[in-house]
Each structure stands twice: as structure tokens, then as C-alpha cells.
Amino acid sequence: MIQHLQKIFLLLLLTIAINGIAADDNIAEKIMMGGSSLGIRDSSKQDTEITFNVALSDLLKAHSANLSVLVFDSTQDLYNAFDKDQIHGIFGTPLEYLQRENKMKPQMMAIHYKNAALKQSLIALVRSADNIKSIKDLRGKRLSMRNTQDMEKLFLNTMLLENQAPELDSFFAESINPKNINTGIMDVFFGRSDMTIVRESEYKTAIELNPQLAKKLTVLATSEPMLGLVAGAKISMPNKSHQAAMQSLIDLSSTEKGKQLMRIIHAESFEEVGSADLDNVRDLLKRYKTLKANASIGSSNANKSKKPARVPN
């Protein structure tokens, strides 16, 4: 339950960064933000929207915000709403953001988690007793990872292709969709699956709650450090309103309610970031696409070589 609420509050706090504060007359511009099932991670669509309207109403008023949140069933639905100007910005994963980056302001907000740097690694966890030394050793075994973990899937598929292996859907005998991130870690701990991938901060927090995890699990691989969740506004939002909104979120940790919410989501602060801060994500995506294209060419050439030669009449 605590993990569930953490993800809800994380999402909602990030959306505050895109509110339209009218700094001179204290009248809030009405802003509609959008996210998808990827952005809310462990939380449900209904819980996210209800919690935003009820639990954070006072906090929003304190920042002169008139903001509504829509959570879409898929990333494509989110993009459709964005392209039709039904929403004013996007909160979600770096991959979701990059698909509409050319229509967004270059400044965005990112969360700085407790137990990790602003940019943190993704880590692949396995059981120490299984003596797994390479990703290849996991062929035909079980993976536990949420369907909403798009960054983790990108990292895993890139690793597999780098090792001349098929992507995860063909590589693993079974792919388990745990109810939340922590359950994925516990699946490996108790032997219900053989590997999971989580953010560095999520694993460190899990170890704080259950030190036995560090004794039984080991890190098989780590990614380059990357941002976790980001929130950005459309280019059309007035700069003055955008900057005021971003500053209100940066200053949030100085308020009592803000400090409480920071503790709930295990966050240190909210920080302004720019386009260059997504370079590691771009590099990973580019590497994946290149490897996938090369694997496709190799497979095509192999199939051609297997065709029997024609026998002349």
C-alpha cells in the first residue's frame, strides 16, 4: 500500500511543475496535464486522478494552480490528446517525452530520489545462489517485470541484442507481470522468478526495509545513469507562467506539506533539467535500434543461405 501511494504522489507532484501560474494577479490559468500507464508506474488510473483532486487540492491552491490531470490507457492515447491540443504537457518516462520533444519547451522538471543521484542507473537483479554470470545464462528462465517499465525493457532488450540473443519475449520462458516494483524484487528473492530490473533508488529503499535482500540478491548488470520521470510543457505555454510554475516546484521542499510529500516518495528535491540531460536515454535508444536493425539483416541473410539451390531441368 505504501509503495502504491508513493507512485501516486510522485506522479502528482511532477504535474505541478507544468501549472500556469499568473504571477502578477495570482489568477491561475487552467492547465490540463496528461500521463499514461507508463508514467504512473504502479498506480491505477482511477487512484491517480482521485488522489490529485482530493489529497493535493490545498497544496495546489497554495501555488495558485488550476490544474487537472488525465491519465490515458496507453501512450498512443496520450500522444493523440497532445497532438489535438487537449492537454498542455506530458509527465512520464524519458522515452515518452522524447517522442514529442520537438513540441516541448527545452526546460523540464525531474525528480531527485533519495538514495541515488539525480540520474540513476537501472540494475538487473538475480539470486546469488544461482551463480548467473551473464545475461546468456538466463535463457529459458523467468523474468519478473511490470509491463509499464519501458526504460527497463529497453535496457534489457539492448543487453540481449548485444549478446546475440533474441529480445525478451523470445528469450525468457515466462514473463511475470508483478503487481508493483517491490513485488518484482521479492519474486526473485523467493524464487518465483530469476531476474528483475529496477531503478537503483528502488533497490536501495527495498534493502533499507529488508536487509536480507542484499544477502540473497546480486547485481548482474547496470545501465548508464538516466533520469527517471520528467514533466514538460508545450512550447505554447507563456514563458513567465512556465518559469513561475517550475520555481514553485523547486521551492516545494521548503513548505511543510512539501516536506511530507518528499518523505512519502523518498525524494530529495525537484530539479530543473534540460534537453542534454536526456542524452544517455537517446544513446541507449539509438544503440537498441542499430542492434535490432543489424539482427534483422543477419536473420534475413541466414534465411537466404538456407534456401536449397535450384536443380536445373
Rank of each mutant, 00 (worst) to 15 (best):
K103W: 00
L59V: 02
L98A: 11
N102P: 04
A124I: 06
N294G: 01
S305W: 05
D85I: 04
L98G: 05
A165F: 02
T218N: 08
T183Q: 14
P312K: 15
H63Y: 04
M246T: 01
I87E: 06
S44Y: 12
F171A: 13
D194M: 08
E174Y: 13
E224Q: 15
T196D: 00
R127H: 07
V126S: 10
E174F: 13
E174C: 07
V188L: 07
M32V: 15
A221M: 12
L118N: 07
M108Q: 09
M246L: 15
S241T: 11
P106F: 04
K286T: 01
E29L: 00
D194R: 07
G140Q: 13
E268M: 09
Q107G: 03
D130A: 13
K45V: 14
K153Q: 14
E167S: 02
K7G: 04
S269Q: 12
L261N: 07
S43Q: 10
A231R: 03
G274L: 09
G298A: 09
G228C: 08
M151K: 10
I135K: 14
L11V: 07
V273S: 11
S236A: 13
A62R: 06
T183G: 02
I90A: 11
L13N: 08
F82A: 05
L13P: 00
A116P: 03
K105C: 03
S57V: 04
D277R: 15
A221Q: 10
I16W: 12
L5T: 01
K153T: 06
H112E: 14
K259T: 05
H242Y: 09
K179Y: 10
A129W: 03
L284M: 13
K259Q: 09
F190P: 01
T196Y: 04
G89P: 12
K234D: 00
F72I: 06
N131T: 02
F52K: 10
M109R: 04
N313P: 13
N102S: 15
P225K: 14
N294C: 01
